Computed example of a mutant assay.
Amino acid sequence: MTNSRAPIAAVVFDMDGVLTDTETIWDDVRRGLAAADGIPWPEGATEAMMGMSTPEWSDYLATTVGVRGTPPEVAERTIEEMAARYRQHLPTLPGAVEAVQRLSARWPLAVASSSPRRLIDATLDTLGITANFRTSVSTQEVAAGKPAPDGYLRACELLGVEPGRAVAIEDSSNGLRSAAAAGLKVVAVPHEAFPPAQDALAGAAVVVGGLDEVTVELVEGLADA
């Protein structure tokens, strides 16, 4: 059994909604595809897709929302538009780069993101923080996206640490559920535009108002959480 008092050995960041303020861009792009195809946006679709892997959300857009094309075609349309938006402007959340730099000086870091690999790599490169991360995982590279624990479990495997000795930094309901299900100690950084559900927040060890609050001392203190 994992010793709950063992020191923290690694930190795993979500990306969209934690490092970059891109959740609203994903939503805008997906809604735009539906609108272009004359499809009304179903209630709850935005929240349902948060954390899904690329195969999962593209299937949802094609079959549940009704966007034109096969899931791979829908995925390609979406990712191409996302990449174009990123080239125009990649909004970064306050304190994101500083938090990464601060924590990487103390622990090995990973990213566990629902974004496809090319957007993960482009984001980290644009922010100038690629070298701060030991590894990264896209949920399209594992069996199931968030809220399943697969992405976080794979990140911990690549880092060589037990999940119970790692800390996840998450914002969305499905992301929080994923990290908690994997056994990581979870820091919730709720996004104002898409506040997480109360049951998802309940699985967090601590809830903060922004990344400036995610200090080395706060993370170290989670060893006893």
Rank of each mutant, 00 (worst) to 15 (best):
I25V: 15
S114L: 07
T54D: 12
P116T: 10
A112K: 09
L19M: 07
L90R: 12
T54Y: 00
E56K: 01
E73Y: 05
I79A: 13
R85M: 07
V100H: 11
G66M: 12
V67I: 14
T46E: 11
E81R: 15
A83W: 09
E56T: 06
G66A: 10
Y86C: 02
D59P: 00
G66K: 11
A99F: 10
D21H: 08
L93D: 08
G38M: 02
S58F: 03
E98Q: 13
T22F: 09
P116D: 08
T70C: 03
W57D: 07
E47Y: 11
V74G: 07
E43G: 07
E76S: 14
P71Y: 06
W26T: 06
Y86L: 07
R102E: 15
T46N: 02
A35F: 04
A105L: 11
R85F: 04
T64F: 01
A110S: 14
V65S: 04
T70F: 04
W107I: 12
R117T: 15
D21M: 03
A84V: 06
R68M: 01
P55L: 04
V100P: 03
E23L: 06
D21Q: 02
T64H: 03
A75D: 02
Y60R: 01
D21I: 02
V74A: 09
A48M: 03
V18H: 08
E73P: 09
M50L: 14
E56W: 02
T64R: 06
W57K: 01
L90E: 12
D16M: 03
L93C: 13
S113K: 13
V65T: 02
D16Y: 04
E23P: 00
S53I: 13
G17F: 14
P108Q: 11
Y60K: 00
A96S: 14
R85C: 06
E81G: 00
L19P: 07
V29C: 02
T64P: 00
E56N: 06
T46P: 00
P40V: 08
T92R: 10
L103R: 10
T22D: 12
T70I: 03
L19T: 13
E47Q: 11
R106S: 15
S114M: 11
V29M: 04
V100C: 12
R102M: 08
E73N: 09
D37M: 05
P42E: 05
S113T: 15
L103W: 12
G69F: 13
R77H: 08
D21C: 03
R68S: 13
V29G: 03
R102S: 14
P55R: 00
T46M: 08
E73F: 07
T46D: 05
Q88A: 14
L19Q: 12
R102Q: 10
R68I: 02
G66R: 11
P42Q: 05
S115I: 08
I79R: 13
A112H: 12
T64I: 08
E23I: 05
T63E: 02
E80T: 15
